[in-house]
């Protein structure tokens, strides 16, 4: 019985390993991975940066490239900006400035604890996707009597939120790279 269970575990493990090996090594090549005798394709790069002039539609590739290097319609790194929005979206938003990279939430009380409320401010500091590119400040108040009183936030919380933003930014970047394939 134990042997059977062990074998099952082993088999499942092997299957999973095989699946993950296959997943990493099977993909459909992009059109630009095929041999082309077109004279246009022999030239390195494109004037204007993108492959052709956009007549219709939204330029996703430009957004993606731009997010790494600075962004076009947005003043700060687009991945960090989106990630900060996603991360803090559980709180009501009070102000968002994508050009200055400042995101301010309104007060938010966790469910089940109406005598406590939080407010966060996120600053996206630059155009590059880098780990020190985001800073989160967290404010906390408690209801004492009829008045909200400032109370300290534990030291690690803000940096934990920063880590969440960074992890989300990483995820978004991976998704957009995958979507571009």
């Amino acid at each position: 019985m134990r042997l059977t269970r062990l074998m099952m575990v082993g088999l499942t493990g092997t299957l999973l390993a095989a699946c993950s090996a296959l997943q990493g090594n099977v993909r459909t090549p992009e059109l630009d991975e095929y041999s082309s005798d077109r004279r246009r394709d022999q030239v390195r790069g494109r004037l204007g940066g993108s492959d052709g002039i956009l007549l219709f539609g939204t330029d996703r590739s430009q957004q993606r490239g731009g997010a790494d290097q600075g962004g076009v319609g947005i003043g700060v790194n687009a991945f960090l900006w989106r990630a900060a929005l996603d991360t803090l979206s559980f709180m009501p938003l009070s102000s968002a400035d994508p050009f200055g990279g400042v995101l301010i939430t309104d007060w938010y009380s966790p469910p089940g604890n109406p005598s406590e409320r939080f407010r966060a401010t996120a600053y996206i500091l630059g155009r590059q996707l880098r780990s020190d590119g985001v800073r989160v400040a967290l404010f906390r108040q408690e209801l004492r009597g009829n008045a909200w009183v400032d109370v300290p936030v534990s030291a690690g919380t803000a940096s934990e939120l920063e880590d969440q933003v960074l992890a989300r930014a990483r995820e978004l970047r991976a998704q957009s790279t995958a979507a571009a394939r």
Partner: peptide, 21 residues
Amino acid sequence: ALMGMGVAQAQTAPTVRVGGY
């Protein structure tokens, strides 16, 4: 913060470009 995240859509609206040499 962890629970509240959405997942981005994979769909991409069509684009039309003009290129050349």
